[in-house]
Amino acid sequence: MSMMDEEKCIAKILAGDTDAYRELVERYQTGLIIHCENILNDRQEGEDVAQDAFIKAYENLKNFSASKARFSTWLYRIATNMCIDTLRRNRRKIPIEHIEQHLEATVPKHIEKDEIAHLQKCIEELEPPKYAEIIKAYFWEGKSYQELATTYNTTTGTIGTWMRRAKHQLKEKLS
């Protein structure tokens, strides 16, 4: 969805077409959940906070100015604030600067079509095939490490190891 399409989508929502918000949720949910999971270090909490962030963004949509920033950046800022609240209420400490790094790093990027095609091709070429499967399941389908561990009848630690190897292999292919 281009920025113009996004502006039109937001305009529709503000005009009363609530269901149009589904498009934004579907577009950003995977990345936002990962963003929150990275900060909170807990998948379920990450999903809960991401869900609430979408709701809060919807409720505050009239305050959002598409001319000043992308919706995704604003949404991620809301989610980050909520993650900070969650960390505070669960008595967990994390340096705020680490959270700010997460904000920049996982906000959706615009990448060119040929880069997309190249990335997708490199993912499909990962060996063994399960590496490609877990990359797609985590980053494209929004599966958690625990769900992947269940699927592959293994532990989250092993999934983490496969993920690291898969990403390392991908980076070498892309370099």
Partner: peptide, 20 residues
């Protein structure tokens, strides 16, 4: 850098992959 790489992976999702 790791996190920026992940952002690119997320951005490369094909439209055939439906969200949750």
């Amino acid at each position: 850098k790791q996190l920026l790489f992940e952002a690119r992976l997320i951005a490369a999702r094909p439209t055939t992959y439906t969200p949750n």
